[in-house]
C-alpha cells in the first residue's frame, strides 16, 4: 500500500465530500429556513444529470449541458415548490416525508418515461481529460477540477449568505419566520427562491458526478441518504455544518472502504476477514451519525442555539 495510493484515495474522499456538500447545502437550507424534510432532493440531482447528459450529447458541449442541467433542476425545483411543497410547510414531518416520497416515485417514473429505461452516458469534457502530476501521484484532472469547482461554489454560497440581501433574508428566515414577514419580505417568493437555489445546487452535483458515474433513474437516492447523514452530523440548518459533515462523510467513507478490508486482512489473515472489513466499512458513516446523534443530539454545529 503505497503513499501515492493513500493520497489518491484521500483526494477522492475530498472530491466525494465536496459533491456531497453541494447536495447537502440545499437540503439543509430548505430544512433550516422552511422546516421541511425533502426526500425528493435526490430527484433534482437526477434531473440535473439527465438534462446535462442529454443536452451535452445533442450539442457536443459538456458545459452547455451543465448549464442546462442546473437550469432544469432549478426550474423543476421552483415548479415543485409552487405546486406541492408549499402546502407542506405547516404539516408535520410524517406528511412531509410521505409527500416527498411520493414525489420521488413521480419524478423517477417521469424521467424514465421521457428518457427511457437505459442509462445515459456523459463523458468528461475533453479539456478536463487525462491526469495531472501532483508530485507522488498522477491524479485525474476532472476530479481535481471537481475539487476546485466544489470549493469555489462553497465560497460563492458562503458569500451569498453572508453578504447579500437574499442571504440576510435567508438567515432571518432561519431564526424567525414571523419577523421577516413583519419586515415586509415576501415569504412565498423567498421560499421558492431558496428551494430553487437548493435544487440548482443538487442539479449541479448530479451533472458533475454524472460524468464519472452512469446517469440513471434511482441515482439520486443513495446520494440523498448520504446528504441526510451529512446534515444530521453537521447540524440541520447550518451551511458550515454541512461542509464539515460532507467532508467527514466523504473522507471517512472513502478511506474506510479502502483501508478497513486491508487492515482486517492483515490482522486476521483470512479472506473472510476482508469481507468483514468491507461490511464494517460500509456501515461506518451510519455509525458515525448514530454516535454524533447520541452524544450531540443536534449535530456538530446546531443552527438554533
Amino acid at each position: 500500500m503505497s503513499l501515492a495510493l493513500v493520497l489518491e484515495q484521500l483526494l477522492n474522499g475530498v472530491q466525494f465530500g465536496l459533491m456531497l456538500f453541494l447536495m447537502s447545502a440545499g437540503l439543509t437550507l430548505v430544512f433550516g429556513v422552511m422546516g421541511l424534510i425533502n426526500l425528493a432532493h435526490g430527484s433534482l440531482y437526477m434531473i440535473g444529470a439527465f438534462l446535462c447528459a442529454a443536452i451535452a450529447a445533442a450539442t457536443g458541449n459538456f458545459f452547455i449541458g451543465l448549464m442546462a442541467g442546473i437550469a432544469a433542476a432549478a426550474a423543476a425545483g421552483a415548479l415543485i415548490e409552487i405546486l406541492v411543497i408549499r402546502r407542506l410547510y405547516a404539516r408535520d414531518h410524517l406528511d412531509q416525508v410521505l409527500a416527498t416520497f411520493a414525489l420521488i416515485l413521480i419524478l423517477s417514473e417521469g424521467v424514465r418515461m421521457i428518457f427511457g429505461p437505459f442509462p445515459l452516458y456523459l463523458t468528461v469534457p475533453s479539456v478536463l481529460r487525462g491526469t495531472v502530476n501532483l508530485g507522488i501521484v498522477d491524479y485525474s484532472l476532472y476530479r481535481l477540477a471537481l475539487i476546485g469547482f466544489g470549493i469555489a461554489v462553497a465560497l460563492g454560497l458562503w458569500a451569498l449568505i453572508a453578504k447579500t440581501r437574499l442571504g440576510i433574508r435567508i438567515r432571518a428566515g432561519e431564526s424567525d419566520r414571523e419577523m421577516i414577514a413583519a419586515l415586509g419580505v415576501n415569504i412565498r417568493v423567498l421560499y421558492t427562491v431558496v428551494f430553487a437555489l437548493g435544487a440548482a445546487l443538487a442539479g449541479l452535483a448530479g451533472a458533475l458526478v454524472g460524468a464519472i458515474q452512469s446517469v440513471q433513474v434511482g441515482m439520486g437516492e443513495p446520494v440523498l441518504i448520504l446528504a441526510f447523514v451529512v446534515i444530521v452530523i453537521g447540524g440541520i440548518g447550518s451551511i458550515k455544518g454541512a461542509m464539515v459533515g460532507a467532508l467527514l462523510v466523504g473522507v471517512i467513507d472513502t478511506m474506510g472502504r479502502f483501508l478497513l478490508p486491508r487492515l482486517f486482512a492483515t490482522i486476521f489473515d483470512a479472506s473472510a476477514a476482508a469481507g468483514t472489513g468491507a461490511a464494517l466499512a460500509s456501515m461506518l458513516i451510519y455509525l458515525l451519525m448514530a454516535l454524533v446523534l447520541i452524544f450531540r443530539p443536534k449535530g456538530l454545529f446546531p443552527a438554533h442555539g
Binding site: F31, I37, H93, V97, I225, F228, V229, V232, I236, A272, G275, T276, A278, A279, A281, S282, M283, Y286, L287, M289, A290, L293, P297, K298
Partner: peptide, 27 residues
Amino acid sequence: RTSGIFFIMITLAFAQMGFFFTLSWPA
C-alpha cells in the same frame, strides 16, 4: 430521546447499517 427529523434520521441510519451489513457480508 430525540424527536422530529432526528428520530427519523437515526432510525434510518440503523436500518442502513443493517442494509449495508447484509449487502457486504459474504457468508
